[in-house]
Nucleic acid binder design. Structure first.
Length: 273
DNA sequence: CTGGGGATGGGGCCC
DNA sequence: TGGGCCCCATCCCCA
């Protein structure tokens, strides 16, 4: 299977440092922190920061069958002790704004169009049944996968163990990677505000911002705020004279890969295809 | 059609 | 080994 997705980028060892983002984050962060703290006891949506988050695998089957039970975020016996539980501190601590942000977008090298296939596995939910939700079962399945794969005629397995996902054809070279991947099937992090489930807590945090309206990331150029750093990064491209993505045919640059792809597919590069 | 924002998924790296 | 975060990528929608 294609493993190109697992290939780390050229700057793999570089510590990202969007100094520009940091600056604005430092200044705006307090505002958001205050807003967050103040809203934490006033805004209904913000309740999800304190008690609206439940990560209970057992509810997932119910979740996909019917969301009626979770549409009313009643402060029931929430399992805040769960490893996936989030608290107001988790967000208000500004773990992602605290200066861990990355390097300056600065004069980045313009990238020519080199589309990468996004790997998706579909039909996942159909495989998830209440009886399958347990991590133990997952891991036991992993073990069996390992043994079966190592015994199979896989060329890669000859040198390293292959950790196969039982929900999809994906395979990994480490158990940790597989376990993390499995979370994308089990979706243990559930937003009790809307019932949407996520594979990782920080994904849920980002989602929660859509409820709270929190936008910790501000553009230093126009002060526009974003809930997601990636979106800010994309936005910063709009301020750049030379965009990050360049058409290999007409040299026109775009702020987003998707725009370049649209551009390519809509005519410019039709000479070659 | 293009440009851009919002939201989200996922692998890799660091602690 | 797991959690948290980073970054990239993608889809959807709207102006």
């Amino acid at each position: 299977m294609p493993r190109s997705f697992l290939v780390k980028k050229y700057f793999a060892k570089q510590k990202p440092n969007y100094s520009e983002l940091e600056c604005q984050n430092d200044t705006s962060l307090d505002q958001f922190r205050l807003a967050e703290l103040s809203s934490a006891d006033s805004s209904p949506a913000s309740t999800c920061f304190t008690s609206g988050l439940v990560f209970d695998l057992s509810i997932l089957p119910t979740l996909y069958l019917s969301t009626s039970q979770i549409e009313s975020p009643s402060p029931g016996p929430l399992d805040l002790s769960s490893p996936c539980s989030l608290s107001s501190s988790a967000s208000s601590s500004g773990e992602e704004d605290e200066g861990r942000t990355s390097d300056p977008p600065s004069p980045e090298p313009v990238l020519t169009y080199a589309p990468r296939q996004r790997m998706k596995c579909t039909g996942v939910m159909a495989h998830i049944s209440p009886a399958e939700e347990g991590e133990e079962r997952e891991t036991s399945s992993i073990s069996s996968s390992i043994s079966s794969s190592s015994g199979s005629s896989s060329s890669t397995a000859a040198t390293r163990p292959a950790f196969l996902c039982k929900h999809c054809p994906k395979e990994y070279t480490s158990l940790g990677a597989l376990k993390m991947h499995i979370r994308s099937h089990t979706l243990p992090c559930v937003c009790t505000t809307c019932g949407k489930a996520f594979s990782r807590p920080w994904l849920l945090r980002g989602h929660i911002r859509t409820h709270t309206g929190e936008r910790p990331f501000s553009c230093p150029h126009c002060n526009r705020a974003f809930a997601d750093r990636s979106n800010l990064r994309a936005h910063l491209q709009t301020h750049a004279e030379v965009k990050k993505y360049q058409c290999g045919v007409c040299s026109r640059t775009f702020s987003r890969m998707s725009l370049l792809q649209k551009h390519s597919s809509s005519g410019c590069c039709s000479t070659s295809g």
